[in-house]
Simulated scan of single mutants.
Amino acid sequence: MTPFENRVEAGRLLAQSLDDYADRQDVIVLALPRGGVPLGLELVRVLKAPLDLMLVRKLGVPGHEELAMGAIASGVRVLNDDVVRGCGITDEALEEVARAEQAELERRAKRYRGDKPWPKLQDRCVILVDDGIATGATMEVAVRAVRAQKPASIVLAVPVAPPSSLHRFAPLVDRIECLMTPESFWAIGAWYQDFSQLNDDQVIAMMREAEELAGEGR
């Protein structure tokens, strides 16, 4: 399997596979920042749907932050009990990490969206997009946060993920669109030639471009 050139190419390919959702009034695309936003922008170019954000933060093990012991979104927390137990994480340590990540969630919400009200998701078709799935902890909390708002359907859209991680989402979403499912999977970035990290200003610029596209479509 050939790696994607970058997130833009991955987004374009993903959009092609989801073109049956184009021009539907009930569709909204929610991207997980930062990495999911370039893909979300490519989806809305094709689907002519609005783009917003699903803010989620990984709860990293203290001292080994790359290892997820869970994730949080607005009002939702998912924990990996095996990691919590295996690493001997105390309740106090867990809450300390959760508080720090909640503060970062709130910072990003203010930075990226200002005072704009959050979209209503009830009875809508929600397409959740990110640049890939590794363990699935972050995406799972995103799915549960969306499901709590009673959408008509949830589509999970990613360019790459291991089959084992996708399997956990089968009962949680209505459709999974994944372009590559390599059995040998060690990191999302390995499936991109360019996996440069994005900054806040880039995210804000992309969200502004998505708003302009939505305005042109009205």
Rank of each mutant, 00 (worst) to 15 (best):
L121V: 14
A152H: 15
E183W: 00
D201M: 05
A161W: 00
V84C: 11
T181K: 13
F185M: 11
A100T: 06
R113N: 13
D91G: 05
E95F: 01
D130E: 11
R168S: 14
I127W: 12
E106Y: 02
V160A: 02
W186V: 07
D115K: 15
V141F: 04
V173P: 07
R113E: 15
R147G: 07
K116T: 15
L94N: 00
Y192W: 06
Q122N: 11
L156G: 01
V78L: 10
G189H: 11
P117G: 12
N199D: 15
D131M: 10
Q149N: 03
R175V: 06
D123C: 00
K120G: 09
K150D: 11
R85P: 00
S153R: 13
H167G: 02
R77I: 08
P117H: 07
T90Y: 06
G189Y: 12
Y192F: 06
L94P: 00
R111D: 15
A137Y: 09
V158P: 09
V84K: 04
D200Y: 00
E183L: 05
S153D: 09
G136L: 06
A152L: 10
Y112M: 09
Q197K: 14
T181G: 02
L166S: 04
T135N: 05
D82M: 04
T181D: 10
L166D: 06
A145C: 12
E140I: 10
G114R: 13
S74G: 12
A73H: 09
R124E: 10
A100H: 14
C178L: 05
A157G: 13
R144H: 08
A157F: 05
D194F: 03
L198I: 04
R144E: 13
A148C: 04
A100R: 14
G86C: 01
F185T: 12
E177P: 03
A73W: 10
V76Y: 13
T181F: 00
G136N: 08
A103S: 15
D201C: 03
R113T: 10
N80Q: 10
G189E: 06
V141D: 12
V146S: 02
R107M: 04
A161M: 02
K120A: 11
A98G: 03
V160T: 07
A157E: 04
D115H: 11
A73E: 08
E140V: 08
V160K: 01
R85W: 01
V146F: 06
